[in-house]
Amino acid sequence: MYDQPNLESTVSQNDIKISADKVQVYYGENHAIKDVSVEIEDKTVTAFIGPSGCGKSTFLRTLNRMNDTIDICRVEGNINLDGEDIYDPKVDPVQLRAKVGMVFQKPNPFPKSIYDNIAYGPRIHGLASSKAELDEIVEKSLRRGAIWEEVKDRLHAPGTGLSGGQQQRLCIARAIATEPEVLLMDEPCSALDPIATAQVEELIDELRSRYSVVIVTHSMQQAARVSQKTAFFHLGNLVEYDDTSKIFTNPTDERTESYITGRIG
């Protein structure tokens, strides 16, 4: 495990996957996200940190339009995925979410078997044309989710019967199964014990080779351990966005410094 910010990984330069420009989010009267612009790189783990209620989860949910399911929520500004505006009226959020997968705070396996949990996404998106192909996708996803060895003998047992850490890796595997390009993770380890957290963090680092990963976290140590880029949010504003090593060793803004040193939050 990394206890030091992984300095070596910040050297490489990647393409821009998501670019947000002057994004505002309103919940009814409440201005939750104020003027946030950020560019998220491909094949990189980007961490959103900040005190509770700072808007980091809200902003994460705008990236795959999960906020659409909340009636009173309104989004302004531009968010582009590979140069295409995701809030364009021509975009079907269903197609968007297949490209931008999401993992939630609490593990939420469906009340189905482990196999069906993974096969759910590929089935609805029509990714497999035969049973054999589907089996293959399930196995591949479970392997990438680093849980195959633990569940291969009980694929047809209910997913809800797994331990918390296994459930969360199952949910990550489920998100991977739809072949997304970006993975959003909303505090994926907050409901897990330290050992399960370590396993999930290791998995996140491996996922970087294929996906752009955005992770919201409460824990600064976690951000330091897994991410290459870090964005610090405070009261709905994006205060600072830079290489993780820079944020944790030499922040520019004093609010960031106060937060990292534990004076606010």
């Binding site: 795959n64 999960m66 399911t69 269903v94 197609q95 968007l96 979410r97 297949a98 997968g101 999401m102 993992v103 939630f104 609490k106 939420n108 396996p109 469906f110 009340p111 759910y120 996404g121 609805i124 998106h125 949910c171 489920r174 998100a175 739809t178 959003l184």
Partner: peptide
């Protein structure tokens, strides 16, 4: 729980797919 629905929407399911299958 709403988390169950969110999990399905997050995978790109439509509302009716979420209802019927989750």
């Amino acid at each position: 729980p709403q988390a169950m629905r969110d999990g399905s929407y997050g995978l790109g399911a439509t509302q009716s797919e979420t209802i019927r299958q989750v």
